[in-house]
């Protein structure tokens, strides 16, 4: 895939300034690219910084958080340098986002139609009538058979899965080049999850967009992503294609995640678990951020933080275990 990336994030740093002069480095030097038409998964535990990464790309970081460094090149423009006003022309237009909680992500006092048309009318110079026609069409595309009625309904009249479909309709309204899906199915039942993810796959084809899929569910990654980045402690610790990740995980953290999944091929007494919890972002261990939980931790792991290096072709990992193989 030697095309130009649609999104290129370089050395992104988003810090939160907490009480007591504590600085939480929620995102600390993240680099990645997303190419047109691909689905890239960003995987990690709660608190690893994946949601903050996505909100940083949208420049929706609120106080006490701040994007402290790096660049976010989106179709060639550096979003960091844009003013808030210029950003409002990109958000919801070229770049759209859907969220984890469909139950609360829609405004309860406006109709579904109002919320779709609002986005259309903001970004495209079209009349109310045209927006209405477009909104009905969008609702049909995302799977509302009675779209003409749904458009007049309020969020509380829809189920969780239906609300997420409505969110997707809003996100797709202006044909975005990039859709950021932040745990889009975490709050839904398993059967609805599959439907929503399949819908996203179809929409990606139909609208020729790229998807940044944020999830903690490796099962979703295996089925719906092309490439995957594993995040830990505000940094990417491993990045490769989905096939490679499942065949040959390099980073001990990734291995830990995979061992914690049940598998049909392997028979085990107990599923593996990574000991400990994600350290808070204002108190990472010295050296490698995974060192205090890592079963392979060596002396130098406690001294300095390894760099993200290309261990094999198109397969990067941030670990001293592979120092020699570079």
């Amino acid at each position: 895939m030697e095309k130009t990336p649609i999104l290129e994030v370089k050395d992104l740093k988003t810090y939160f300034y907490l009480e007591g002069n504590k600085v939480a480095k929620a995102v600390d030097g993240v680099d990645f690219q997303i190419y047109p038409g691909e689905t890239v998964a960003l995987v990690g535990e709660s608190g690893s910084g994946k949601s903050i990464t996505s909100l940083s790309i949208m420049k929706l970081i609120d106080k006490p958080g701040k994007i402290e460094g790096g660049s976010i090149l989106f179709s060639g423009t550096d979003l960091i340098s844009l003013t808030e006003k210029q950003m409002t022309k990109i958000r919801g237009n070229d770049m759209a986002m859907i969220f984890q909680e469909p139950m609360t992500a829609l405004n309860p006092v406006f109709t579904i139609g109002n919320q779709i048309m609002e986005s259309l009318r903001k970004h495209q110079k079209i009349s109310k009538k045209e927006a209405y026609i477009k909104a009905v069409e969008l609702l049909k595309i995302v799977g509302f058979p009675r779209a003409e009625e749904t458009i007049r309904e309020y969020p509380h009249q829809l189920s969780g899965g239906m609300r997420q479909r409505a969110m997707i309709a809003i996100a797709l309204s202006c044909n975005p080049k990039l859709l950021i899906a932040d745990e889009p199915t975490t709050a839904l039942d398993a059967t609805i999850q599959a439907q929503i993810l399949t819908l996203l796959d179809e929409m990606k084809e139909k609208f020729h967009m790229s998807i940044l899929l944020i999830t903690h569910d490796l099962g979703i990654v295996a089925e719906h992503a092309d490439r995957v980045m594993v995040m830990y402690g505000g940094q990417i610790v491993e990045s490769t294609s989905v096939e490679r990740l499942f065949e040959n995980p390099l980073h001990p953290y990734t291995r830990g995640l995979l061992e914690s999944l049940p598998s049909i091929d392997r028979e085990v007494e107990r599923l593996g678990a990574i000991k400990g919890i994600v350290p808070p972002a204002f108190n990472f261990p010295k050296g490698c951020r995974f060192s205090d939980r890592c079963p392979y931790a060596m002396e130098e792991c406690h001294q300095s933080n390894p760099k993200l290096l290309e261990i094999e072709t198109n397969h990067q990992a941030r670990c001293f275990l592979y120092k020699e193989s570079v």
Partner: peptide, 25 residues
């Protein structure tokens, strides 16, 4: 709330977010 984040993610201006989405609620 989440729906205000959604409203911002839609690219609405701070004015619309405040006077339409926030005040009404």
């Amino acid at each position: 709330s989440d729906y205000i984040r959604t409203a911002r993610a839609k690219g609405l201006t701070e004015r619309t977010v405040l006077y339409k989405h926030t005040l009404r609620n």
